[in-house]
Amino acid sequence: MSNTETETETETQNETYVHYHDGGVLGKRRVLKGKAAKPTFDEVPKIDMRRIYSDSLDDRKELAKEVGEACRNVGFFYAVNHGVDEQILDDTFAAVKRFFDLPTEVKMEVHNQKTEKFRGYEAFLEGKLDPSTRGDLKEGFLMGEDATDPSQNLPLSTLPFMSTPRNQWPTHPTALFLRPALTTYHTAMLAFSRRLLSIFALALSLPESHFDPITRHPLTNVRAVHYPPQPSASDVGIGAHTDFCFFTLVCQSRTTYPALEVLNANAIWVPVAYEPDSFVVNIADFLKVVTGGVWRSTVHRVRNWGGEERYSLPFFFSPDEDARVGVVGGFGGEGGGEEVEVGVGEYFQRRLEVDRRTHLEGEGEGDKGGGD
């Protein structure tokens, strides 16, 4: 590994370790080279997703077989030929670039610390997943599911905590374009995610509808992110972590040099470059729980070293907020993980509080080291 990766590395008795957050808990992995190295991936596989729209169950099962292999061995894959309207993606990127170019005082009207769900604007350096850095060099905007918003066209829920608005939107005349753009993107990504969820079920040898009962009103988020060029080797766009959802779909802006990196079993960072007409899909903590650790919630980070502005549009899909998830039949003990059952809403909120309050002195420190 290069000398520029010191922000997540330490050396102990001539051994080098990479540090990260896994499930909200601080962890580390020893860098393995030479004879100590394990068989592991050195690139992220590309999977043609056109079969996701096929009427043939055999076609969908063949797709699921490829997806399952990627989930077991890597935890990441490119979803190529995803079928989501490219014009929607282009329009969304144009809107988020325009929003992040607005004056700070306009963006801070909807600062994420004003809401319990931390939805809204996140300023530079407010996240700090890697304590050895000055903070995550990014700004972002988070929105998500809201059954009270007619433009989202979501089924109404009888759950009392879903009966009130869940997002906050800027009201300044120069920023009104953001809401329709992100809502349109959210709707398109939710539709694709539901199809992908059925493929994940098939990959686990389950009926396509297996996860339907716990995803009637799924927790979903769009997090628009702006990563400026990093000025020094000690900076990081976002520190090494796993995602706290079922799975994540990432749409990256075109950059010459890859900024997203994933950690393999030898603690070597593997770059994930921009690929046209593709999403980067990664398995997250809840699917790791469902498979008893057989599917990997893979550690990843962003380092924007290429000298270009980078924008990213991750979409996070989770089970219902009041759902509980545990290991499905046939996976108990196979992955070496504990057979735990997790309350989705509680876990999700705890991870939000850790990730969104790390810049506040003294807050979140106890949560970082705690388990479930």
Rank of each mutant, 00 (worst) to 15 (best):
A224I: 10
R254F: 00
S132A: 14
R357I: 02
A188C: 05
G329T: 08
L125P: 09
A37D: 05
V290K: 04
G68M: 00
F192M: 08
L159W: 12
P150T: 09
L32M: 11
H111D: 12
Q13D: 15
H359E: 01
R216Y: 03
K97Y: 03
F211Q: 07
W269K: 03
G370R: 11
S297D: 12
E275C: 07
E122R: 03
S205D: 15
E361S: 09
D277S: 15
H186N: 11
Y20G: 03
E346S: 15
G27A: 14
K38A: 07
V344L: 04
F77Y: 11
D372Y: 12
T256N: 13
E341A: 13
G371F: 05
Q113A: 12
I52Q: 05
P228M: 01
V340W: 01
N167E: 09
K288E: 15
S157C: 06
G34Y: 12
A95I: 05
S209T: 13
I283P: 00
V328H: 05
E363I: 09
T164W: 00
E346V: 15
D55P: 03
E339Q: 10
D277M: 06
V18H: 08
S157H: 06
E126S: 13
E208A: 15
G24S: 01
M49C: 14
F93S: 11
P160V: 09
A94E: 15
A36K: 10
F316E: 10
F331W: 13
M1L: 04
F315Y: 12
G371M: 06
L89N: 13
Y53A: 13
I52P: 02
K38M: 08
A95R: 02
A79M: 10
R303K: 13
R60Y: 04
G366F: 02
S297H: 08
E116K: 03
S151N: 10
L125Q: 12
H82Q: 13
V325L: 01
M49Y: 06
Y311N: 05
T4S: 12
L32Y: 05
Y274A: 07
G329D: 14
E341I: 13
I52K: 00
N264A: 14
R51S: 08
A201I: 15
S198Y: 07
G364R: 04
N112W: 11
D149M: 03
V25S: 03
V106S: 04
M143F: 14
L196V: 05
G336I: 13
F279W: 04
G333W: 00
L360Y: 01
S318E: 11
M143L: 09
G336W: 06
P165N: 02
R179I: 08
A147K: 01
V18C: 09
E363P: 00
E116A: 09
E346I: 15
F76H: 08
F200Y: 15
R166N: 06
A224K: 07
S205F: 12
N282H: 07
E208T: 15
A175H: 00
S253R: 03
V328I: 11
T255A: 08
P131H: 02
E105Y: 07
D355G: 10
I268P: 02
G306A: 02
D355L: 04
P39M: 01
P131M: 05
E126V: 12
R98A: 14
P155S: 12
F192P: 03
G239Y: 07
S232L: 04
V225I: 15
G329M: 00
Q252N: 07
Y347C: 14
V31W: 04
G330D: 04
E363M: 01
N81R: 04
F192K: 01
E69L: 13
E7S: 11
